[in-house]
Computed example of a mutant assay.
Amino acid sequence: MQRYLSSSEYIDFEAPEVQALARHLATEAASETELVRLAFEFVRDEIRHSVDFKLNPVTCKASDVLRHKTGYCYAKSHLLAALLRANGIPTGLCYQRLSIAGGDAPYCLHGLNAVYLKEWGWYRVDARGNKPGVNAQFQPPREALAFPIVAPAERDLPEIWAEPLPVVVDALSRYDTYEQVLANLPDIELIA
């Protein structure tokens, strides 16, 4: 579990502002599960999704997401992982492969988290941010993610990553504006 508890370049929970928020959330929670819920709701509701709000800059590191209060789903998942890891809660990164056009190609990755809850084991949460048609919630053991898998080539990817996928980091690092990222969303090829 150590790799799901470590600070890193993108899940930089040792940054002072991330540490401060992690400590504040811990003081508000009566249990570990409540702490996960509070951190999830903070990232979901207080960090604005870059596309929904048409916001720059493009963020990747957890500390930058918190500083600028904006990020794509991937970056928001980095912040949630940082807040929970700072409190000793194992947290990984997960991805879905979704259709951009509503059923067919092109496809892109969508970033979310898996959190290890003592009562239920690994549990996926999606702090992307709610809007009409998107209603992600924290309701363990039932998952309530932002997007269901509906198209034949869409997938819930089963891996729980300790670090962001390189293709995600590349997209968030290469482009300067949310529009540029939107035009070049990361994707991977599925193995048959």
Rank of each mutant, 00 (worst) to 15 (best):
M1D: 13
M1E: 12
R3D: 13
Y4C: 02
L5A: 09
S8I: 01
E9H: 13
I11K: 03
D12T: 05
F13L: 09
P16D: 05
A22G: 02
R23P: 00
L25W: 01
L25D: 04
L25A: 02
T27Y: 07
A30Y: 00
A30P: 01
T33I: 11
V36G: 02
V36H: 01
L38V: 05
F40P: 01
V51Q: 07
K54T: 12
L55W: 03
V58R: 07
C60P: 00
A62K: 02
A62L: 01
S63N: 04
V65E: 02
K69F: 04
Y72D: 05
C73F: 11
C73A: 09
Y74P: 06
A75Q: 00
H78F: 13
H78C: 13
L80I: 01
L83M: 00
L83N: 02
L84V: 09
R85V: 09
A86W: 00
G88I: 05
G88T: 01
L98G: 07
S99Q: 06
I100D: 03
G102Q: 06
G102T: 03
G103P: 10
D104Q: 12
D104H: 13
A105S: 15
P106S: 01
C108L: 08
C108T: 14
H110L: 13
G111F: 09
N113E: 03
Y116D: 01
L117H: 07
L117A: 12
E119V: 05
W120D: 14
Y123K: 12
Q137H: 10
F138P: 03
F138C: 05
R142L: 11
R142G: 02
A144Q: 13
A144V: 15
L145A: 04
L145F: 00
F147L: 10
F147C: 04
P148A: 11
P152I: 09
E154M: 03
L157C: 10
E159A: 14
E159W: 14
E163H: 11
L165A: 11
P166D: 01
V167E: 15
V168W: 05
V168C: 10
D170C: 02
A171Y: 06
L172A: 02
L172K: 07
S173C: 14
T177K: 11
T177W: 11
E179H: 15
L185C: 03
L185P: 05
D187L: 07
E189N: 10
